[in-house]
Nucleic acid binder design. Sequence first.
DNA 1: CGCCACATTGAAGGCAGTCAAAGGTGGTGG
DNA 2: CCACCACCTTTGACTGCCTTCAATGTGGCG
Lengths: 240, 240
Amino acid sequence: MCPYSSSSSREQRKEFLGECPLFSGLSKEGVEKVASIASSRRFGPGELVFREGSPAEGFYVVMSGKVKVYKLSPEGKEQILHIFSSCDALAEAALCADAAYPAYAESVSDSELLYFQRDDFQRLVRRKPQLGLNLIANLCHLLRQFVSMIEGLSLREVGARVAKYLMDLAVRQGSQGKDGAKVRLDITKSQLASNLGTVSETLSRTLRKLRSEGVIEVKGNLITILNCKALRRISAGMRL
Amino acid sequence: MCPYSSSSSREQRKEFLGECPLFSGLSKEGVEKVASIASSRRFGPGELVFREGSPAEGFYVVMSGKVKVYKLSPEGKEQILHIFSSCDALAEAALCADAAYPAYAESVSDSELLYFQRDDFQRLVRRKPQLGLNLIANLCHLLRQFVSMIEGLSLREVGARVAKYLMDLAVRQGSQGKDGAKVRLDITKSQLASNLGTVSETLSRTLRKLRSEGVIEVKGNLITILNCKALRRISAGMRL
DNA sequence: CGCCACATTGAAGGCAGTCAAAGGTGGTGG
DNA sequence: CCACCACCTTTGACTGCCTTCAATGTGGCG
């Protein structure tokens, strides 16, 4: 899985599939079948995986690396919908009948993706319904994230969105709850801004304000949460 | 299906299921099975179907009426995520493991909903994988709509969102493309505003501006599209 | 060392939200 | 039939959050 390695072997792929939540609950033979319809594709940093509007005939699962999926405004502003990393499925929209990707996807690092053709996958789901249930759970999860994003964009100010992002990140990185928890941004601040529906300038100002309130400490992409309660209040809509 | 009728009979339910895209491609016996695990629930206008955070143990399919699913800000502002009507599935989030509804759902008319318990439904999917595939397509469709909503909120001004809504509505009502097409809003303007991520005052002003530009004509909830090309330009981001 | 991308800070302006009040509309009951 | 009420809609004035533009700071890397 290290960067710059050559494509994975068939054995490595099977091992990966076995550990992926999307393929859990399948028999050894089931995983075998999944592996047999997957093909591997590698992308370098900045490389486009697909563009908005191009025909969607299959979806991807990230084996390694990160892929950002985003929309562009006519003026060129970018809104990141989600950044997918290991074990995430992306572009499930391809499983819909009307087949055009609704957004851009771009690798932000060296990545290896598994590609599944729609028809192959659907055939397999008919034989292994568990796979369908797994994908449904996966889609529901993504749906929730989008709901949360809509809520943020429509009902919360930038400060609250930033606070919520930091708390969620702390949870994901296993250091929630306690004051003094350290979190590391695993994307650039510009990308984070684009993910939160704002611009880097505003994000910068917001972080500064949080810092001046003594809520967080910022050193590069390492952020220390000094006052967890305050952060929670802010993420819930309390003014800065 | 007329309002104020009593609950549907078992026969009516089966007939309805047979015509619902979500249950297409199933054998007669399959539809029978689906009907056997569904229970019917009726709601009056303004009645809450479920609230955010309450345990989610199943999802619904709309037989008749309309249900709005929405988020509330701490200050009480409402963002409508989607308005579901006949044959739509809602609250599929319940099929996810972590089981709490992420939003409120409220009937906006007299409605009859079919309720499916998660476990029952999942059992059935194992025996009828086509059902899983149908639901996946359904979820993908909803995902696209949310993507479109995120795009609108983040990258488009209110004018563009309104224009896009009107064009989409014209398509749904079968009168797209031509100047002079008439569309009828099937929800109140306040609800529309909440759906577009704005407030009724701003929507009112926006419609007036579109009217003063000669792009549309407004009479109550009946809107005539006078200049389709202009509307498309505006929806694509061209300034008003 | 110098380049380049990313990040920060300041100043100015605009889109849209809030507040407040008046105007419209449909339904109900006297 | 009309008066009343509730709800939705419209309009005006004001405020403010955030974006835009521009310039400077910073860190990594060839």
